[in-house]
Amino acid sequence: MITKYSTDHEWVKLKEEDEVIIGITDFAQEQLGDLVYVELPSIGDEVTCGDNISVIESVKAASDLIAPVSGEVVDVNSKLEDEPELASEDPMGEGWFIKVKLSDISELDDLMDESAYQTFIES
C-alpha cells in the first residue's frame, strides 16, 4: 500500500486501484493543537486538487484541509464530527478524513514519498 504526502501536510493512502484515503499528518496535528471541530465534505462531492474541502478547528484557530488530489468523495469519517480529537490522537489511523475515488491517478506522482516528506518538514 502506497502512502504519499502533500506540502499541506496531508497523507494520501492508495487503498484500491483508484481510491485513496486522506488524512492529516502527525506533524500537522501537532501544529494545529487540540482539535475541537471538523467539518467534512459530503459523500458525492467532486473535489479538485487545491480546493478547500474541509475545515479543521483547534482551540485557537480554524484551518482548511486542501484537497491533495482530484476526484469524487466516496466516504467520510463521520466519527470526527463527534470526536474531532481522533485526528489528533491517531492522525494516520482512526483519525482519517475522507475517501476519494481519483479522477486522475497520475496526480499521485506529484506528491512526496515518506522520506521526501520527512526532509520537507525538517527544512
Binding site: 493543537g33 487540540d34 483547534s58 482551540v59 485557537k60
Partner: peptide
Amino acid sequence: PLQYPLGIKKEH
C-alpha cells in the same frame, strides 16, 4: 509562549 507541549486545552 503560545503553548507548551501540554497543549492549550490541557493547560487550560
